[in-house]
Amino acid sequence: MTAPMSNRTGRARRARVVEGVMKVVTGACVAMVIGAALFVLGKIIVAGLPGISLEFLFSKPGMGMRAGGIFPVIMGTLMLVTLTGVLVLPLGVMAGIYLSEYAPKNLMTRIVRLSIANMAGVPSIVYGLFGLAVFVLLMQIGKSLLASALTLTCLTLPVIITTTEEALRQIPADLRQAALALGATRWRAISKVVLPAAAPGIVTGSILGLSRAAGETAPILVTGAAFFLPKLPDSVTSQYMSLPYHLYVLATQVPNVPPEITWGTAFVLVVGVSIVSMFAAAWRSAQRKKVKW
């Protein structure tokens, strides 16, 4: 009687030990992830912050980019992202509305969904090639803000579509029914009730998507980002400077750049992109908790 008992407790004890070990092992994995994130953030802040000054943010690069600031670089990225947003938001939100509100359950819709998921996985450099072939050369827009924005539009589209669809699906079917039962057409129900209710989710998701687009380098490398420009772009068909490309140039193409300039550029890029998107994500999850349907 005692033998199987002790046997069983022995097995249980071993299982407990294994469990403890596995908790430590998987915990170590998480620790590594947190460590990597903290390292990236910490290194950028520690090395980048000393280079940040009003002069750095608001003056042009000088002396072959070994001095001065990054004003035209920041402006170029802001312009590019704004233009991309203007192009991609209507398209992406409409496509999201299609999937959430109109799409029938059939093979075509499955293909649309597969396409969207697949678009999200196409390498960014391939979007660059596509933009070069179609927007820069075929449509003869030339290397420019517009060509880059169109390229980034294609790249960002799946994010905007998915985020819109997800936000619309959070809105209970009851609300659509109520609007229809009041004699509203489908579109009025969507535009006056469903879309406003889903707006916070769509806006934050779009900010996330666009801030990712702001950090893309490969697609703009071949469609319009300039190594150096003496002035700001004056139209959408001008070339432009951009933060990620500028960082690439400073880090690999120009010798003897003072480190505070390179790190300062990296700091501005990371703060601008990741902090904005982190706050957007946090705001969205807070919003979700606040409104209970």
Binding site: P172, D174, L175, Q177, A178, A179, L180, A181, L182, G183, A184, K192, V193, P196, A197, V291
Partner: peptide, 25 residues
């Protein structure tokens, strides 16, 4: 549906003001 209205099982006001809810129709 403007002649035949409906009230649903669960209260489902629109996420807007009381006034705008009633004014919707």
């Amino acid at each position: 549906r403007t002649r035949v209205g409906q009230v649903f099982q669960r209260p489902n006001p629109f996420p807007m003001s009381i006034y705008d809810n009633v004014a919707f129709g």
